[in-house]
Simulated scan of single mutants.
Amino acid sequence: MSSTSKVLLIGASGTIGQAVLVNLSARHEVITVGRTSGTHRADFSQSGSVAALFKAVGKVDAIVSTAGNLHFGPLAEMTPAQFNLGLQDKLLGQVQLALLGQHYLNDGGSITLTSGIVGIEPIRNGANATAVNAAIDGFVAAAAIELPRGLRINAVSPTILTESVGSYGPFFPGFETVPAVRAALAYQRSVEGGQTARVYRVH
C-alpha cells in the first residue's frame, strides 16, 4: 500500500482501536468511525447504518474493524436475547461490514475483522463470545476464496489486553495479557501485508 492509502477504521475510540489508529495513521490516511465519536458515526445494531457509512465515505483501500459487543454471563442464566447481542453486534455487524464494504474497496484492498482468543480457548461465562469469535474466523476463511479483484480478508484474534485486565481479568484466569500496541501490529500486518484468509493470533 502507498503512503496515500485510505483506511476506514471502525471502533477507533476503543482500546485496540486507539492503538491501531496510532500505528496506521503514521503512514496512511485513516478515517475514524465510532458509535458516538470519530469522523463518521455508525452503529452495527442499527439497520442501514453501515450502508449509510459507505455511501458517505466512498472508495477506500482498507477496512479495519476493532468493534463489536458480546454478552458474558453464566450459561444457566443466559437468555436467547442476551446471546443474540453478540450475534447481531460483533458477528453480523462485522459480516455486514465485509459484505457491503467489498464493493467500496479499491482493487487489491483489504478487510480486517476482529475475533478473539476465546474462539479457540473457551472460558466460563463466555459461550456467546466463543460462538461469535469462532464464527468470525470461519467467515474470513470462506470469504477469502470468493473475493474478486485481488481483495483480501483477515481476522485478528487477540487475547485479553493488558489495559483491559481491570474490566475483564476475572473472566480470564491464568491467561497471559498483551498490550494494545502489540495487538495493533497484527492489524498492520493484515493491512500492509499480502496474505489473505489468515487469523493473526496475538496470544
Results as ranks from 00 to 15, higher is better:
Gly108Asn: 05
Arg201Lys: 15
Pro179Val: 05
Thr112Val: 14
His40Lys: 15
Val20Asp: 00
Leu91Ile: 06
Val118His: 10
Ser13Ile: 07
His103Ser: 13
Phe44Cys: 04
Thr162Gln: 15
Ala184Thr: 13
Leu185Gly: 00
Leu97Pro: 05
Ser5Gly: 15
Ala81Lys: 13
Gln82Ala: 14
Leu9Ser: 04
Gly138His: 10
Leu70Val: 13
Pro173Thr: 09
Phe139Glu: 13
Leu97Met: 15
Glu146Thr: 11
Tyr168Arg: 04
Val202Trp: 01
Pro148Lys: 14
Pro148Asp: 05
Arg35Ser: 11
Val118Pro: 10
Ala127Gly: 08
His28Ile: 02
Gly48Ser: 07
Ser157Cys: 05
Phe72Met: 11
Gly58His: 14
Gly126Glu: 08
Leu113Tyr: 12
Ser115Val: 03
Val30Lys: 14
Val132Tyr: 11
Lys6Trp: 01
Leu75His: 06
Pro122Phe: 03
Ala67Glu: 07
Lys6Val: 13
Ile136Met: 10
Thr112Asp: 07
Ala180Ile: 04
Val156Gly: 05
Thr112Gly: 01
Arg41Tyr: 00
Arg35Ala: 02
Asn106Glu: 12
Val165Thr: 07
Ser115Trp: 02
Pro179Leu: 04
Thr32Lys: 09
Ala183Arg: 01
Leu92Asp: 13
Val20Tyr: 02
Ile123Asn: 07
Gly93Ala: 03
Ala142Phe: 03
Ser25Pro: 11
Tyr187Phe: 15
Asp89Val: 04
Phe44Arg: 13
Ala183Thr: 08
Ile160Tyr: 09
Gln102Lys: 15
Ser2Ala: 11
Ala62Gln: 10
Ser3Thr: 10
Ala155Met: 09
Leu113Lys: 10
Gly166Val: 07
Val156Asn: 03
Asn69Asp: 14
Leu99Asn: 09
Leu97His: 13
Asn23Phe: 02
Ser45Lys: 12
Ile63Arg: 08
Met1Gly: 14
Pro74Ser: 13
Thr36Val: 00
Ala134Glu: 03
His203Ile: 09
Glu192Tyr: 07
Asp107Ser: 11
Thr162Asn: 04
Ala98Ile: 07
Ser47Lys: 15
Thr4Asp: 13
Ser157Pro: 06
Thr32Phe: 02
Arg41Phe: 03
Phe44Thr: 09
Gly58Lys: 14
Met78Pro: 00
Thr177Gln: 11
Arg27Gln: 06
Ala197Gly: 02
Pro122Ser: 12
Asn106Pro: 12
Gln82Glu: 15
Phe83Glu: 09
Asp61Gln: 03
Leu8Ile: 12
Asp89Met: 01
Ser47Cys: 12
Ile145Trp: 06
Thr79Val: 11
Arg198Trp: 01
Gly138Lys: 09
Ala142Lys: 03
Leu53His: 08
Glu192Arg: 05
Tyr187Asn: 02
His103Val: 00
Asn128Lys: 10
Ile136Val: 14
Pro170Arg: 07
Val118Gly: 05
Ala135Tyr: 09
Thr130Ile: 03
Asn84His: 14
Val57His: 11
Leu97Asp: 08
Phe44Asn: 08
Asn154Arg: 10
Gly126Thr: 01
Gly169Ile: 08
Thr130Leu: 05
Leu105Ala: 13
Phe44Gly: 09
Glu192Ile: 06
